[in-house]
Design a protein around this nucleic acid. Structure first.
Lengths: 216, 216
DNA sequence: TAATCATTCTAATATTTATTAGAATGTAAT
DNA sequence: ATTACATTCTAATAAATATTAGAATGATTA
């Protein structure tokens, strides 16, 4: 088998196709957005702060690697992750990045308004408290994303409506706010707002994708 | 917080540094080799079939992403993975690639000499049989790699020495051969050799890195 | 100390990839 | 049908990466 080298090259080349998807900051952001549920090209472009054309180009790469699927709904084309394991890989990559890159650790500390952030080991006790109603788990993402998937016992108040709907929240109990994940700033904003209004809010960095990955 | 976009860009950029490492076929091959234990630049270059200079350049990328560590031993500089989680990510990426890319599935089928390949679900029964001595688990990698880490109950006969040392293996029991992982052809060669000589050998695609990952 | 060796660094070029603009496609509304 | 709209495709350029060669480094051996 003298063409063993050719076969191996071919194999690694295929795997690299997947790796390439995760080598561009904007594609990573699109993957994270898609972890929240299916979205149209325009929505993705807006939320990632890039042009529709560029978004389309990146999505084409994602589709070429068979990591997303598309579906036409009226005028819009909706993209969604082809499999849950794509979200898992995103979580594992950003987790490894957080473990290994000091620069990332430092940047993440800037986001943390207070040292209130919950760590994975608190999961069980958080769920216990949420079940008993001792804490309010608050999902501050847009409501469509909440409807697609949310943490157990979570209540939905999108960040945009939060100021108006403060009355729905109790002041005598802890509020645990979360959003799309550690790189989404919505929960941090929500926590700042709530604490400024006399609530006792803390920030949970995990989003639904992170929560879905066991062994963390 | 109007610079939210800048912060986010910075965060995704950092994660993309990790992704970039896994976006090049040759870097992937180097990562897989490093999963087998620490190796010198020259060894890595030889085993990946690329020049020393190019190997050095790729290793520099790996080091810049803090995924490998170096240690000087005499004239040589040895590289090793900075953390077990790097090997885990390699396994998860190639697993996702195998799930999603038909091209890769087809290329892998070419390697499979027979439909004898073991699947993950056989792990428990394999270990049970190996413990009882009903099957021989055979590690055909170079002996240094075996010494660094190997599967439970595995015996080491490097592929190069296999023909000479056939007498050490029983003909009345199944032999399960493995090597560096699904993209390494050594175990396939070993299985072909053994079956040609009257042994009943089968090919286990997992290597130590794959074996170490749970939930598979 | 000089010579040798493994490896890295620097710089140059070849190849890819990202990004943008304009034309084309397919659907929905008028 | 015609128009408007969302998205993709094609083509062009700008930016980044892979690869190679030559000089430099740092440790070992003669």
């Amino acid at each position: 088998m003298k063409d063993a080298r050719k076969i191996k090259d071919l194999l690694y080349e295929q795997v690299a196709r997947i790796g390439k998807v995760f080598s561009s900051p904007k594609r990573l952001e699109l993957v994270e957005l898609l972890c929240q549920g299916e979205k149209s090209v325009e929505t993705l472009a807006h939320e990632a702060s890039i042009s529709v054309k560029l978004t389309s180009a990146h999505l084409r790469e994602l589709r070429a690697a068979h990591l997303v699927e598309t579906e036409r709904q009226g005028k819009n084309i909706y993209y969604r992750l082809a499999d849950k394991s794509v979200a898992d890989l995103w979580v594992q990559i950003h987790t490894l990045a957080e473990e290994r890159l000091i620069e990332l650790q430092m940047a993440l500390q800037k986001i943390a308004t207070q040292p209130h952030d919950l760590v994975p080991s608190d999961r069980e006790s958080l769920m216990k408290a949420a079940r008993k109603g001792e804490v309010v788990v608050l999902d501050v993402r847009p409501s469509e994303e909440y409807l697609t998937a949310h943490l157990p016992f979570a209540r939905s108040i999108p960040l945009e409506e939060l100021r108006k709907r403060l009355g729905e929240l109790p002041k005598d109990r802890a509020i645990v706010a979360y959003c799309r994940g550690p790189y989404c700033l919505m929960a941090a904003d929500a926590v700042a707002l709530l604490n400024g209004e006399g609530y006792s809010a803390i920030h949970l960095r995990d989003g639904v994708a992170e929560w879905a990955v066991t062994n963390r």
